[in-house]
């Protein structure tokens, strides 16, 4: 399935792009992150949360398709 991946803040600085489409055939968020880690090895040193279709998810959550976002620490206000 095709996943739209969004990167923000320091994560976008690491990936040097804000959005891309990745073709994915695994099951879990952890599988998806493995792909991103091999594409962007520096991500391993960054702290971030993962949102799938705008809801925070854990590594064990199943990938359902749509949009996955990598969110660095929040700094609002």
């Amino acid at each position: 399935m095709k996943i739209t991946v969004k990167y923000f803040g320091m994560i976008a600085e690491t990936t040097q792009c804000e959005e891309e489409i990745i073709d994915f055939s695994g099951n879990f968020i952890s599988d998806f992150l493995k792909i991103l880690h091999s594409k962007y090895p520096e991500l391993k040193n960054k702290g971030f949360q993962v949102a799938q279709n705008q809801e925070l998810v854990s590594l064990e959550t199943g990938v359902t398709g749509g949009e996955i976002a990598l969110l660095p620490p929040f700094a609002g206000g």
Partner: peptide, 10 residues
């Protein structure tokens, strides 16, 4: 807001 809203500051 501080804890839950995905806003990023450079």
């Amino acid at each position: 807001i501080k804890a839950h809203v995905p806003v990023f500051g450079k």
